[in-house]
Amino acid sequence: MRKLTVVFVAALAASVLSCNRAAPETTDKPKVALVLKTLNHPFFVDMRRGAQEAADRLGVQLEVQAAEREIDVEKQMQIVENMIQTGIKALVITPSGSREIVSALVKARDANVPIIIVDTRVDEKAAAEAGVHTETFVGSDNYEGGKLAGAHVVNVTGGKARVGILEGIPGHETGDSRLRGFRDAVKDAPGITVVESQPANWERDQGFNVFQNMLQAQPDIDTVFAASDLMALGAIEAIAAAGKTGRIKVVGFDALDDAKKAIAAGTMDASVAQFPSEMGKAAIESVVKAIRGEKLPASIMVKLEMVTKESLVRR
């Protein structure tokens, strides 16, 4: 028994120790936490890369943490609490929930840690009620992006389309803004009807399933707008499975590498490009200013771009 316990404990210790290669406590660089929604999405991986490059350049010690699942606000809150304990000088965060995250931000405020929000805005009312002040917001305007996508659809269909929409997780500011933008852009085109709009929760496999079901119910859908590329890529598979490749236009959001490949191959029509690595970079640059006590603008907008086959060729 005793032997077993020793083995167990040794294994535990070894597993913890072996993971501890990245813990230099000695540097006098300011330590900054970058808390992402998740790291199993190319968008956030790109954001991390941009942030890391800026951090290396500007002499910031960056600690990147993320929840295992994008929707896990409680885990994000735990990470924030834990990072505060390590004496971070600033918190950069992409909130998993616009309102829920406020409780975590309160903890940062209590510890006098300046907060910089990236990608997803914090609910202003909830933040004001809790007395949370954020230094700045870095992101792209999702509403404008949705409008860009909508205008593109009007353009390429000649103002005549039956549209199916794949939504993100309901209640997420990011997805809701994109949808609002899209709907606002197409509402003046009388020939464009949104026949179905359903959540596929940002995920590729759900994009496949939900769109497959949509096609069953509405076989005459000729255009898809997906609030993210992962869902769009799922929809493309569903279109292929139904033997309708090329007959349904797919417009996505994020311009992921896979989406660009699909656009080049002609299975996808277009995607709204955000620049997550730019966001990461701008966030870290803002952090440095905030630590120096400089005043920051209320929001820092990163550009958006429509990626189409033509724009890919031009590059």
Partner: peptide, 29 residues
């Protein structure tokens, strides 16, 4: 474990491996 791995800045992917190993180790005993 979760707290400690956060404090040490261990990546969230590695954290899952460590936690899984602990579960199996405990039941193995």
């Amino acid at each position: 474990l979760r707290n400690g791995l956060n404090l040490l800045g261990v990546s969230s992917f590695l954290q899952q491996i460590v936690i899984g190993a602990v579960i199996i180790g405990a039941v193995l005993i």
